[in-house]
Design a binder for these strands. Structure first.
Lengths: 340, 340
DNA sequence: TAGACTTATCGAATCGTTTCGATAGATTTA
DNA sequence: TAAATCTATCGAAACGATTCGATAAGTCTA
């Protein structure tokens, strides 16, 4: 592998001169500089990243830690990250913190191969992140909150998203709404439930809450609870079911469809997350979406600013983005007909 | 940041002793070794990756270059890669070679931050890859073929996939089949067309080829060509349409549905690729899928072997995986009914 | 107990780049 | 023309870990 030393040797200069010449520094006489650059090019010289990183402070690389690569989620987040970083000289590098893979976190963050990190994986240990931040690496966590100097949070406002979704249901005339929550330890589920309750509390109407059921974010649990709702209240007592995530909402739709209840007309179903399947389900699922692109863009912005500017200008509180209501067929009273 | 020197200092040994002690080397007396390890742990010492990479030959990191992160494709490939690498000590790191982003390729491959690379992006310049391989970095390219020592290809057998799909259509009793190709410069499209032709050539039946139309892989082109097919031949002369990719097949379904032709019953539609939407379309699209997990797993296997074993044991020809026919509703004569 | 081996540790060199202070030589200033 | 100022380049010291060949001890053989 051709090294700077070899380039310098052939150009008849010292490595130090070659080094600054290659950066186009005017301290080197023009013809020397051009000769060095030409020889480097001819030899296909590219500086060794490890050596440079070792010597320099900055690496110009940002680590992005994802749980896996599935879904349009991550792809959108990364688009936002890339757009923000494109002209800033930083390159995002993605590591998968998948099943038991301590590898990427170690290699990228602990072994100091990056200047900063964006972490989108609820399973990455909070204490580990705090320890890393204390070592001086700026971290942006997405969709969770960690209060620690050097760790910045960017997230969607789940409470507000659920609030608006509920308001929409009420405005559309759905009177009696049941809510299916996620597991108890899910802060997202809690926030969504809180938004639902706030919207209901504001309305003057009576009997709008048809019960709060505890699910576990799986399609099966949604399905089971839908049957339970029907048993509990008779199929015409509930106007709408708001599930704390799309998987459960799909389960609910399945259950209703199986007993012949027409979704949209007889009962509305609202999901949360806007997973890809939501738009292909029949009827297409009305749901609430996180602005993933914006979140990625903003996360990248925070990291870049933490590295370039003075960190005191950065927010200490989580940056919260509003969620978007995506209205589809499952909450529309117009008759839904099958087929393409 | 705590360095080896600091650990050594506190343990009262030299950095060299600390270095081997931390690796559990028996050359260091047991109590010294344990003391060093304990101090390193207490100080939160993690070796600096750049320094280690610089000194060592291997980095234990494999670069994975993807075009973007969308779709279940990449996610499946990466699952395969991770499973293969999990116990081998290598960590895959993903770079996006997205729009004009020369960054990831430079940072990972050129600047020698990885031991090997898996490239799944048709747009990464072939010459650039050859140059990198000549510098000694083993590369596995997916879904394309580059003949060069040090570059290994893993791909699906598109010709065979199309052959089987066509055979299936013939077996199901579809007599008159039209084919919609992709753009002329697509080798995939060519291979798929070749498989289609080979299957037709083998059959004794007459008039089975209802024409070959030139599309451009977009849904719109599929739609337009479907109308053209109907104009050309009358809507009952064509039994089936085989599009060289799913997008076009969806366009074809749309066109037929718009004029009231019942897909599956009056005309079968076959796609290629099994993009995610295929299974959610109504009717769900019969298509041909690449075994992405296997491809990823095998790519990782090749890279690991290139780095660990003797390279002469590796295949010089592209490793080709059979494609899988995914039968869904769009080629089934049973009456399709809308609804969930 | 001198010589041969082991054992435990260390010092110095190395990986490839960058950076800082030094040094000639050329040029300007007083 | 001696002193001051540039200009172009170089040498050496980092960065942090690894590695190899010393080097002291301590243990064993004859």
């Amino acid at each position: 592998m051709v090294s700077l030393r070899e380039v310098a040797l052939r150009a008849g200069v010292s490595p130090s001169t070659a080094s600054i010449a290659l950066r186009g520094d005017k301290r080197v006489k023009t013809d020397t500089r051009e000769r060095v650059i030409e020889i480097a090019h001819a030899l296909g010289y590219v500086p060794n990243g490890s050596a440079r990183d070792l010597k320099r402070k900055s690496k110009q690389i940002i680590g992005v830690l994802l749980h896996d690569l599935g879904g349009p989620f991550y792809s959108e987040v990364l688009r936002g990250i890339q757009h923000r970083m494109h002209d800033s000289g930083f390159t995002p590098i993605v590591g998968c913190s998948a099943p038991g893979n301590h590898g990427a976190l170690t290699r990228l963050l602990l072994e100091q191969r990056v200047d900063g990190a964006i972490v989108l994986d609820p399973l990455v240990d909070k204490e580990a992140l705090i320890r890393i931040a204390r070592r001086g690496l700026p971290i942006v966590v997405l969709d969770r909150e960690i209060s620690e100097s050097g760790i910045y949070s960017v997230m969607a406002n789940h409470e507000q998203g659920a609030y608006h979704a509920t308001q929409y249901l009420l405005e559309e005339g759905f009177r009696s709404i049941a809510f299916i929550s996620g597991p108890d330890d899910s802060t997202h589920s809690k926030a969504r439930l809180a938004g639902f309750c706030r919207a209901l509390a504001q309305t003057r109407q009576r009997g709008v809450c048809a019960g709060i059921y505890a699910g576990n974010f799986t399609e099966d649990s949604g399905c089971e609870i839908a049957y339970q709702i029907m048993r509990d209240q008779g199929r015409h007592r509930v106007d709408a079911v708001f599930a704390a995530n799309d998987e459960m909402a799909l389960g609910v739709m399945k259950a209703f469809a199986d007993v012949g209840v027409v979704i949209g007309q007889e009962v509305a179903v609202m999901g949360f997350d806007d997973i890809l399947i939501a738009q292909y389900a029949r009827p297409a699922l009305t749901t609430v979406r996180q602005p993933m692109y914006d979140i990625g863009y903003h996360a990248a912005d925070l990291i870049c600013r933490a590295l370039v500017q003075d960190r005191s200008s950065l927010p200490t509180e989580a940056v919260v983005f509003p969620m978007q209501l995506v209205v589809r067929e499952s909450t529309k009273k117009t008759t839904f007909e099958g087929g393409i």
